[in-house]
Amino acid sequence: LQLFIKTLTGKTSTVEMEPSDTIENLKAKIQDKEGIPPDQQRLIFAGKQLEDGRTLSDYNIQKESTLHLVL
């Protein structure tokens, strides 16, 4: 599924993920695209901070969801 990652600067990146992927996997993919180390990334979806060990489906993240990346 395609996700949009929006940064505080207003920049939006697109990443392709599976519902079974963990937040950790997602942060690794963001690191590949943006060069931001996972330990500096905080991802927010629906007002919640996402935890590394959980999966996208745990948070009911659907295709074309927008996640907010806070550093």
Rank of each mutant, 00 (worst) to 15 (best):
P19T: 08
N60K: 08
L56Q: 00
T22E: 02
E51C: 08
F4K: 10
V70D: 06
Q31I: 03
S65K: 04
G35T: 03
E16P: 05
A28C: 06
Q41C: 05
I44M: 11
I23Y: 01
Q40P: 02
D39I: 09
S65G: 06
D32Y: 10
S20F: 12
E18P: 04
T12H: 06
T66H: 15
S13D: 05
I23S: 00
I30Y: 03
E24Q: 12
K63W: 10
I23F: 02
K48C: 07
L67K: 01
L1G: 04
A28M: 12
T7G: 11
T12V: 14
K11I: 12
D52A: 07
A28H: 12
N60F: 08
L69S: 01
R42W: 09
Q62P: 12
D32G: 08
E51H: 08
D32I: 13
Q31V: 04
G35I: 02
D32K: 13
T7E: 06
S65I: 05
L26P: 00
E18F: 14
L50V: 04
P38D: 04
A46P: 01
A46H: 14
G53F: 11
E16M: 13
E51G: 04
T12R: 06
F4N: 09
T66E: 07
Q31T: 09
L69R: 01
E34W: 15
K48V: 15
G35K: 06
E51A: 07
I36M: 04
E16H: 13
K27L: 04
S20T: 12
L69N: 01
T22Y: 08
D39Q: 12
D32S: 12
G47P: 01
T14A: 09
Q2L: 15
L1M: 13
L69Y: 02
L50F: 02
L56Y: 00
P19Q: 08
E34N: 10
N60G: 14
S20N: 13
E34F: 15
T12M: 13
S20R: 07
P19L: 11
K6D: 05
D58A: 05
K33T: 12
Q40R: 13
K11T: 10
E18V: 10
Y59P: 01
E51K: 08
T66K: 05
E34C: 14
G47Y: 04
P19H: 07
L8H: 13
T14P: 05
L67Q: 01
T22P: 03
Q41E: 01
D58Y: 15
K48D: 06
F4I: 12
T66M: 07
K6P: 02
E34P: 02
K11W: 12
E64L: 13
I23R: 00
K6G: 03
A46M: 14
M17V: 13
A46Y: 09
L1Y: 10
K29T: 06
G53M: 08
D58T: 04
L43D: 00
D58M: 05
D52Q: 05
L50T: 02
P19S: 12
N25R: 14
I5P: 00
I44V: 08
K63H: 15
T66S: 05
L3F: 09
L50P: 00
A28W: 10
D58N: 05
K11N: 10
L1V: 09
T9H: 14
D39M: 09
L71H: 07
L50N: 00
L69V: 06
S57K: 12
Q31Y: 15
K48H: 12
H68W: 15
